[in-house]
């Protein structure tokens, strides 16, 4: 739900990083946090378990500068990927403007990827959104690991609507900003159509 404050001249948008557990959603946010100038980002909040698994969400506010005189902010959230946290995932999708799906490239995680995309589709529908319409980017993460599926095969299996797709190695930052930019641009293009 893009929040436009005409009095304060601000636009705030919400991007949610979705995907199966241990796929690298939090690592994407951490890389963005580390590589963004301190005056352009707020504090990164991680509501995680003691074992560093996301329990509720991670949150990172980014201030990207201004567009047509309006300060443009993106609020990045991750969801907990583990299957049993579905109630929390639904809550976090509330008011979403765009989604990044972080898929795990390891062959034995394909089923988890497919299940998570299906789960995203259903949870978006509960909020009245359709994945086919919403700004969306796909990232094939963990390209540096052994036993990964080739990119074209993953594309055939996971690409939903010919959305922009990026190969990623999140801890090294490969593909991280490209994915973010892609979804952010789609959100701003939607705003133009408003």
């Amino acid at each position: 739900m893009t929040f436009i404050n005409y009095a304060a001249k601000e636009i705030n948008c919400k991007i949610v990083y979705y995907g199966p557990g241990l796929g690298g959603k939090t690592t994407n946010l951490q890389h963005i946090y580390n590589k963004t100038a301190p005056d352009r980002r707020g504090k990164m909040i991680s509501l995680a378990t003691e074992a560093d698994r996301t329990l509720f969400f991670d949150f990172l506010p980014l201030d990207l500068g201004s567009i047509r005189g309006f300060t443009t902010r993106f609020h990045l959230y991750t969801v907990p990927g583990q299957v049993f946290y579905d109630a929390s995932r639904k809550l976090i999708l509330k008011g979403v403007d765009g989604v990044v799906f972080v898929a795990d490239s390891q062959t034995d995680r394909m089923e988890a990827n497919v299940e998570s995309i299906r789960n995203l589709e259903l949870n978006l529908q509960e909020h009245g959104f359709e994945l086919i319409n919403i700004p969306y980017a796909l990232q094939f993460n963990k390209r540096d690991l052994p036993s990964i599926m080739p990119v074209d095969e993953m594309y055939r299996m996971l690409n939903y609507k010919r959305e922009p797709t990026f190969a990623g190695i999140a801890p090294q930052g490969v593909g991280v900003f490209e994915t973010l930019k892609s979804v952010a641009k789609q959100i701003l293009v939607e705003l133009r159509k408003k």
Binding site: F3, N5, Y6, A7, A8, N133, I134, K194
Partner: peptide, 15 residues
């Protein structure tokens, strides 16, 4: 359109 907007205008903001 999939995206919904919340808009706050000057007058209501001040109120």
């Amino acid at each position: 359109m999939p995206t919904a907007y919340v808009e706050v205008y000057e007058e209501e903001f001040e109120r």
